[in-house]
Design a protein around this nucleic acid. Structure first.
Lengths: 213, 213
DNA sequence: CAAAGAAGTAACTAGTTAGTGCGTTATTTG
DNA sequence: CAAATAACGCACTAACTAGTTACTTCTTTG
């Protein structure tokens, strides 16, 4: 097949990509219920009719956006190649990565929140998600085992619980940054505040996992 | 003033209370955007006109529901009387309380999530919230100081960071229980799973705070 | 007990929103 | 190059939704 590089006036792939990017922004900004299909069409500079043509309906579009978001974060995690580092360093790298991914991709958090408000009914319909995470939990499990062998990690830590905690201490801080900044009367998004939080999180996990923190 | 105990056919206070309870449920179930004023009226067995009469509009109603929710959790926290326990026990009691409160009051989490989706614009209008939390942070700060004096806690821990982490490790697990149960292929709400999580959380915090965990 | 005011109701409005019917224009292919 | 196919757009609808108008019914109080 010949790959065309000429800019086409009509380009199905490009239109679909623009719609998906616009949908991600709009769903992240307003949630599934608050998102407006007309707004997505406008942002994508596509006709609303095209959304229904390519993606079926609003809920299907949301499901596809969500699948893309999960695939994206897991792909980035795979690229870390934690197996090539000493366990301790690998764990710290994972904590940093998780924090920075949430910071740079705030839509991810909002999309997941919205999906949970709807009791994960879209993710339930998706089949490719489970395998994505099976590999991920396996990776962290292997990392923990390796740390125990190296003599740096305590044995018996559940990789799922650890994963949840690593995610939680970053995710909660960022998703609740607006109410948090009011309630604690400090700007939780100030650069120093973000650095301080990351350091606190690394220490929390290291104290939990390492024999000699 | 004479307190009437006879059941009135018309009772402004009772109607307002029914509306608030119904609104809390509906907002928690569907978020601010997804909630329907008609649905709130039906649930409350009140006429929709009464909602506008007593609470102004949908957003004001949401703000009042949110203020009530924050006041409620902070009131329950005050009642713990942590100052009467050794620091270590008091800290564990606080972790347990936070977890159990989220478990028993799932609307709290959803309301806070919804408020953060809207960048806390309703809480910004509220004045009584800040003082509520100032006292709370002070309480945890005093607890940490006492633990250091008793020789059980490490010095230099920021009470705000600790508060955020205690909330995070429970909150995240529960708010993301639907996607989490799919992603990790385990029922995160099974009684054993809940017990296991609480134990993991207590250990995480104790290792972070205590000199001799 | 009658007047005043508060509690409560039904039906409506004006605006919005997901989704569609049908026609037009560009691109591909036999 | 003509016919088929796919991309695209306009204008519509049916259903919904926050908020209101205009009214009735009950309760309190001078």
């Amino acid at each position: 097949m010949v790959v065309k590089t000429t800019k086409k006036v009509r380009d199905a792939d490009a239109t679909q990509a623009r719609i998906l990017a616009a949908a991600k922004k709009e769903f992240a900004k307003s949630g599934l219920g608050g998102a407006r299909v007309d707004e997505i069409a406008d942002r994508a500079k596509a006709n609303k009719r095209m959304i229904y043509h390519y993606f079926g309906n609003k809920e299907d579009l949301f499901r596809i956006v969500l699948e893309e978001a999960y695939t994206d974060i897991r792909t980035a995690e795979q690229a870390l190649e934690l197996e090539h580092l000493p366990a301790r360093e690998a764990l710290e790298k994972l904590i940093r990565f998780t924090w920075e991914y949430y910071l740079k991709n705030p839509e991810f958090i909002t999309l997941v929140n919205s999906e949970n408000l709807h009791k994960a009914r879209h993710l339930k319909k998706s089949d490719k998600i489970e395998n994505l995470f099976k590999r991920f939990v396996g990776m962290v499990g292997a990392l923990l085992d390796r740390g125990v062998e190296e003599g740096t990690f305590r044995p018996g830590i559940d990789p799922v619980q650890l994963n949840i905690t690593i995610a939680a201490i970053g995710y909660y801080y960022l998703t609740n940054r607006f109410t948090g900044s009011i309630v604690f009367q400090r700007d939780l998004m100030a650069p120093e505040a973000l650095e301080e939080r990351l350091a606190f999180n690394i220490e929390t996990i290291m104290r939990m996992v390492c024999i000699d923190p």
